Amino acid sequence: MKKIRLLIPLLAAANIGFGQMKQLNKTSMKAPESVYIHGSNYYISDTGGDPTKKDGDGFIYKMNSQGAVSVFVSGLDSPKGLWQLHNILYTPDVDKVKGFDLATGKEVFTLDMSATGTSMLNDIAPMNDSTVFVSATDISKVYIVHLGKHPRYEELVFDNPVLGANGVIYDASRKRLYVCGFGSMGTPNGQIGYVDLTPSHKKFVLLTGRTGYYDGIALTKHNTLLVSDWVAFEKKGVILEIDLKTGKTTTVNKEPIPGPADFTLNPQGDIVTPAMMEGNVLQFSPEH
């Protein structure tokens, strides 16, 4: 596989101060969108630029714990969210969900969702070991995707659609799907909330009245929700922490981030986030 020179090794990110950013790499990546950690490896999707165009310039990179970076998959269109189940790495790619064998990088799963009318499938998160949620940002919808030999999908129908539905994460203990939106028509009117999957008539319940260009989302061990907000299309992005009991919202980064997209948490609780507008991947310990 093609090797890429890593300017700042991954392991050099140890002992990061609260809120202090550490650049993990600065390579030839154009627009890193999602980071996913599996074992000692970091997988990073790169849309190549246009998030909706079928142009074959998308990649998934693989970065190991020693800082070596290689191309895991090339020739994609615009891969975004990443998640692994049964040693298959899944990613939404424009209007398809694709899966790649983690050992070989070979494509082993494809589900065409173009009939929905979307050209911007975005985030992905598991409900269980055979079902995932996938957001479609351009049509403000969320889908339930059933994997396996005979894959299929269905829309998750609920009241109060999330404008620009983007980040999704499922809390099995509460049977809640947390969703955040990027907004619509270039306006930061995205919202943060959840859908209770228990009742037959489902509703989107707001967690905060604050709106923004919301992208990534994650649950923490502290009964809080982390959500990234681009704020503007320049270096102004923040990552918010929302207390699920009180609704209190705080910003956990000191330095602004240029395009904080689909971030993740490492085993130490540090935030690892793409800085999509600069082609970087950053790591920092959130302030509490």
Rank of each mutant, 00 (worst) to 15 (best):
F182K: 09
T187P: 00
C180K: 04
L163W: 00
G167K: 05
R152N: 14
A172F: 03
S184D: 13
Y178V: 08
A165R: 10
A165Q: 09
E154P: 07
S184W: 02
Y178F: 15
V179F: 04
V162K: 11
V179E: 07
R174N: 05
A165E: 07
L156F: 10
E154M: 12
G164L: 06
F158N: 03
D171M: 06
S184M: 11
E155V: 11
N160T: 09
M185N: 15
N166D: 15
I169N: 03
K175C: 02
G183K: 03
G164S: 09
I169D: 03
G181P: 12
F182R: 04
G183S: 03
L163T: 05
G181M: 10
Y170R: 07
M185T: 11
V162D: 10
N160R: 13
D159I: 00
R176A: 03
S173R: 09
Y178N: 06
L163M: 12
V168T: 14
R152T: 14
F158T: 03
A172P: 11
F182D: 02
A165V: 11
D159E: 15
P161N: 12
N166I: 05
G186E: 06
L163C: 00
G167E: 08
S173H: 07
G186W: 05
G183Q: 06
L156S: 12
N166E: 12
K175M: 10
R176C: 02
Y178M: 06
R176V: 01
G181E: 08
R176I: 01
A172C: 01
I169M: 03
F182E: 04
G181H: 09
G186Y: 08
G181K: 10
S184R: 14
G181A: 10
Y178L: 05
N160H: 15
S184V: 14
M185W: 04
L156N: 13
G186I: 06
G183A: 04
D159Q: 14
F182I: 02
N166Q: 06
K175W: 00
Y170A: 10
Y170G: 09
K175A: 05
G164K: 10
E155G: 08
R174W: 00
F182G: 04
V157F: 01
V157I: 15
Y153H: 14
G181V: 11
R174P: 00
V179M: 12
Y153P: 11
P161H: 12
R174Q: 14
F182S: 15
T187I: 13
D171Y: 03
F158V: 03
T187S: 12
Y170E: 07
Y153V: 06
G183V: 05
D171T: 08
D159A: 15
V162Y: 09
Y178C: 08
Y170I: 08
G183I: 03
G186R: 08
L156Y: 08
Y153F: 15
G186L: 07
